Simulated assay, not measured.
Amino acid sequence: MIIGCHLSVAKGYHHMGKEALSIGANTFQFFTRNPRGGSSKAVDPSDATSLNHLMITHNLGPILAHAPYTLNPCSIDERVRRFAYQVFEEDLKKLEIFPGTYYNFHPGSHVGNGVEKGIAQIVELLNHTMTSEQSTVVLLETMAGKGTEVGSKFEELRAIIEGVEHKDKIGVCLDTCHVYDAGYDIVNNLDNVLAEFDRIIGLDRLKAIHLNDSKNPFESHKDRHEKIGQGYIGDEAIKRIINHPLLRSLPFYLETPNELSGYAEEIKYLKENSIPF
Rank of each mutant, 00 (worst) to 15 (best):
R224M: 12
L247G: 12
G147L: 12
D198K: 06
D235I: 04
R205G: 02
L211R: 07
K167D: 10
H166C: 03
C177H: 11
K207F: 10
G171H: 05
K239H: 13
L190G: 07
I209Q: 00
L203C: 05
E265Q: 15
R248H: 13
I201M: 08
G151R: 00
N216S: 14
E226N: 10
L247F: 10
I233G: 03
E226D: 12
A264V: 05
L157M: 13
I233M: 08
L203Y: 01
D185F: 08
Q230E: 14
C173A: 10
A208S: 15
G163W: 03
F252C: 03
K169I: 11
T148K: 03
E165K: 15
K227G: 13
K239C: 07
K227C: 08
T148M: 03
I200Q: 03
I201F: 08
V193G: 03
L174T: 06
R224S: 12
A264I: 08
D185K: 08
K167Y: 05
L157F: 05
H178A: 14
V172N: 11
K153R: 15
S249Q: 14
L174C: 08
N212L: 09
S249P: 00
N192A: 15
G202Q: 06
P251T: 02
G202T: 04
E196Y: 10
E236Q: 13
E155T: 13
E265K: 15
K167I: 10
M143Q: 04
A159I: 02
E196G: 05
T142W: 04
L140A: 05
A264T: 08
L157K: 01
A182G: 08
H225R: 09
K215V: 04
L260K: 15
E196W: 03
E165L: 13
I228N: 06
Q230R: 14
P251Q: 01
L246A: 13
D223L: 10
D204A: 11
E149I: 02
V164W: 11
D168Q: 14
L140Q: 06
N192F: 11
Y184F: 10
I242M: 01
E265G: 04
K215N: 09
P245A: 12
Y184Q: 01
V179W: 08
R199I: 01
K207G: 00
K222Y: 07
G151C: 01
V179T: 13
H221T: 02
A159T: 11
T176W: 12
H221A: 04
E149K: 01
L206V: 08
P257V: 07
G171E: 03
R199Y: 06
E236D: 14
A195H: 09
G163R: 02
E259A: 14
F252D: 00
I228D: 04
I233P: 05
F154Q: 06
S220L: 11
I228P: 03
I209C: 00
R158A: 12
L194D: 05
C177F: 09
